[in-house]
Design a protein around this nucleic acid. Sequence first.
DNA 1: TTGAAAGCGATACCAG
DNA 2: CTGGTATCGCTTTCAA
Lengths: 339, 339
Amino acid sequence: MSQLPKQPAEVSVPTSADVARLAGVSRATVSYVLNNNSTVRISEPTRRRVREAALQLGYVPHAAARSLRAGHSRVVLLPTGRLPEEPLHHFFQELQAGLRGLDYTVVQYGNAGLAADESARAWAELRPVAVVVPPGITLSPHGTEVLIRSGARAVITLGPEPVPGAHGLVMDQRLVGGSAVEHLLARGRRRIGVVMPQEPGLASFSEPRLAGARRAAERTGAHVRPLPLHYEEQSATRLAERWRDLRLDAVFAYNDAYAMLLMRALQDAGIDIPGDTALVGADDLLLGRLLRPRLSTVRMELAIPQPLAETIDRLVHHPGSAPEHHDLLRTSAVHRESS
Amino acid sequence: MSQLPKQPAEVSVPTSADVARLAGVSRATVSYVLNNNSTVRISEPTRRRVREAALQLGYVPHAAARSLRAGHSRVVLLPTGRLPEEPLHHFFQELQAGLRGLDYTVVQYGNAGLAADESARAWAELRPVAVVVPPGITLSPHGTEVLIRSGARAVITLGPEPVPGAHGLVMDQRLVGGSAVEHLLARGRRRIGVVMPQEPGLASFSEPRLAGARRAAERTGAHVRPLPLHYEEQSATRLAERWRDLRLDAVFAYNDAYAMLLMRALQDAGIDIPGDTALVGADDLLLGRLLRPRLSTVRMELAIPQPLAETIDRLVHHPGSAPEHHDLLRTSAVHRESS
DNA sequence: TTGAAAGCGATACCAG
DNA sequence: CTGGTATCGCTTTCAA
């Protein structure tokens, strides 16, 4: 550990004791006043003196000390990896607003480059009262136990599949691949490529999407073929060059961004969309509507935006209930011009 | 405040005292062993006993208690607003990695819907040892003082302009508008539109970009005209409909995403790009290269990615130095086909 | 080499 | 109505 110097310019941080001294009361009284504690009655002049003293000193309560004393924090931890794709980002904003309204402190913890078990430990050091694990971040059953044992009252995962021991709001990514392929099948396509992004961290999405695509195709005897692709022009060009050899009549491009990349490469290679090959993305981004032909896509909706905050609050107050798993994701294919 | 029940399923969180008891040593010894304290020599068998006990109990240290005792945390706070645009996101990842390597805990604090002074207080409650305020989040001089008085050793802003009292890594967004307009002027354009996104939270970027555009144009007597635009197809279509009346021969579209939106609308309205109107974006996203014509853009680079972590560490160890301001942003126009 | 004990800041009991 | 005080988990000085 590095030692920090104690002397230089040590700005004295005002504590509740300082407020008490300035107001001429005890620290207990300060606490009562500043927390509006209603079980004890404090005279109005005293209240005012305390509040003025706090203001004058610029007193800010010390969250760590408070939660140490209380035995639990008000921190809801939200580990983050890569930046959240759009449907999720909105969901987080809602969740944060909801939790803030219930007086929780939402804290995001950047998880880049930490192994699954390390990170659970790192989260646990902060003693969060609840943890919400988004898709793309892995939480092992062991990690769940570490969190629970460190005092977390609610551990909630949002992911392709439930984690034992944790409450799960399952976002079954297989539905995305399923919707895309069903849409293509309905339009008479039979030989379907599925783009597999090679970017690290996307496998936990792309694998289940592929699985869902396969499942949908199996029933009909259609053919599904995974297509590795980097998010680079070059990679797309190479894929497009060997397109005719692949003999595919449709492709599900993982999402709209990859779809745009691929569409451009295919068009530059003289492939007609949707004539030769139908193309479907996912996410329903605005940019898809700007392409020519307009991009067909899979729209995703997350049920329960605001209620999740309340669910967490409920779990915090009544922990120990058996883990529940709810399905969160609704998908629907949106037909435009590319399929 | 809500009262949490104490009884139900209260999982006893293991403390260092529990570890000590199980290992048959004192809490002091546990602390020495687990922190690899080198100023004191503990026998190897004891060390092993302690470590095994910690492992067996699943002991995780309590960060709040630790920093309470230490008098300062290892938390670097990174308030966030809307999701970071791409050049910044990468910068944050680097910063986080660097700080983690120096044994800091980087914590993001979602700031959606908080007034400037409220938020400074909220941040201060966490007693961060340093705060890095990204562009788009406002920090007042008063807020800076609150943070410093609450023990923050380093307050660093990344923004269009420096904040008094805080160290600043200035990202002068005027440079972006300046580069774009200079590029257009160099290619003989004289009547230049500047897209102003109407989305909330973007004004702190778009206003200085417009100012930079104006400054660049002034010297040459060229004309600059702000063009309000929502990030919606409809809005772009309406703008395109009155395009010929505007009599502009060029437009700086704020960034690549807005540029794409506008390009499509203009093309659908029969405007030739770059023949009738030159178009420049910003951010150098991949999608710009996929457009036809390929999109000219302003590339932004942030100097000092890794070193910032070290700068923060230095400030933490030697606080009280006079606020410094460094210019962080480098911009350059990238000519492709749309201008 | 190990242990006892003080104390960081805030809160909530119990007396006065 | 207000004040003293024990306590949360951890680190670190001082003694043994």
